[in-house]
């Protein structure tokens, strides 16, 4: 019996490779200077789901993302790697959502898919680093959770039971639990598979509003059995049956009061020559004031 698997992914600015012009002079983020990428741990979550699907015949991988229209890119990348179904949850009324409002919208979208066995998320997104959306979505769905999962050790599709290894400070826990469950994945295992060439050819032109005329079918080889038409579902607030009061800014209890650019404190630095003599003097000072020794 196949399993219904759902992966929640996010497109994020690449905050790990920040360059000098990433911040504007007024302290706001210059998003244009930051490439948008597939949140790294979400790729591991996708890989975990694909691995489960490949080992349990009849399973399906659904990938959902909430974001602006440009976030279709992470859905395409999911298709390239083997997702069976993808949907973009996008609506102006989702804008400025904090983690609580985001998890509410994701819960509505997951429920639209219907029954599910495992929801996979990355542990955290590199733009906010909060690690909150996974557990909040689990609570809203009323399901159990295992966070910081490095690997799934055992999965029994008949008994609907999972054993997963969870990373904790300086060690790990092995947890056994019943499905349905939500897992958040770390980047320790499930190295993302590369995109498949044939799937890339098929889905590179996939959009949410595709007409036959836009689609270049010349790359499709017979027997591949893949079709890109209308591959990306677009769900707005009504499609997922969400209450607008619980979405976006209205549904977000946290407010950003102020944003401060990180300013370096200018201390009175003393430059030490790279010579035996100068370094010796510095060491002498540090010993004299009991910093060393």
């Amino acid at each position: 019996m196949g399993l219904n698997l759902i992966v929640l992914v996010k497109q994020v600015p690449d905050t790990q490779n920040i360059t000098g012009n990433a911040m504007k002079e007024d302290g706001t983020v210059n998003r244009g200077a930051l490439p948008a990428i597939f949140n790294p741990e979400d790729l591991h979550a996708l890989e975990a789901a694909l691995t489960v699907r490949d080992s349990v015949p009849g399973s399906r991988v659904h990938v959902l993302t909430m974001g602006p229209p440009s976030a279709v890119q992470v859905l395409k990348e999911s298709l390239y790697r083997g997702a069976d179904f993808v949907a973009l949850i996008s609506d102006r009324r989702f804008a400025a959502a904090d983690t609580l409002a985001t998890s509410y919208a994701l819960k509505c979208a997951v429920e639209k898919i219907g029954s599910y066995d495992i929801v996979f998320c990355g542990r955290q997104a590199i733009d906010g680093d909060t690690a909150q959306v996974g557990p909040q979505t689990a609570e809203k769905l009323g399901v159990n959770q295992i966070t910081c999962v490095s690997r799934i050790e055992n999965l029994d599709p008949e008994k609907k039971e999972i054993t997963a290894v969870r990373s904790i400070e300086g060690g790990y826990e092995k947890i056994r639990a019943k499905l349905p469950i939500l897992l958040t994945l770390t980047d320790e295992d499930y190295l993302p598979r590369p995109p498949s060439a044939i799937r890339m050819m098929t889905y590179k032109n996939a959009t949410t509003e595709m007409s036959d005329g836009d689609f270049d079918e010349s790359y499709l080889t017979s027997g591949a059995g893949l079709k890109a038409e209308n591959t990306i579902s677009l769900w707005d607030i009504n499609a997922i049956g969400a209450d607008s009061e619980s979405c976006g800014l209205a549904g977000s209890p946290t407010k950003v009061k102020t944003i401060d650019l990180v300013v370096l404190k200018s201390e009175d630095i003393r430059m030490i020559e790279n010579t035996d003599e100068s370094i010796g003097e510095m060491v002498h000072e540090l010993i004299a004031d009991h910093t060393l020794g």
């Binding site: 302290g27 209890p253 102020t258 990180v262």
Partner: peptide, 16 residues
């Protein structure tokens, strides 16, 4: 810290 540590955000949640 937020956004990879490039900004320091002060967050409030006064209404609840």
């Amino acid at each position: 810290p937020a956004f990879g540590g490039n900004i320091i955000a002060t967050i409030v949640s006064p209404e609840r």
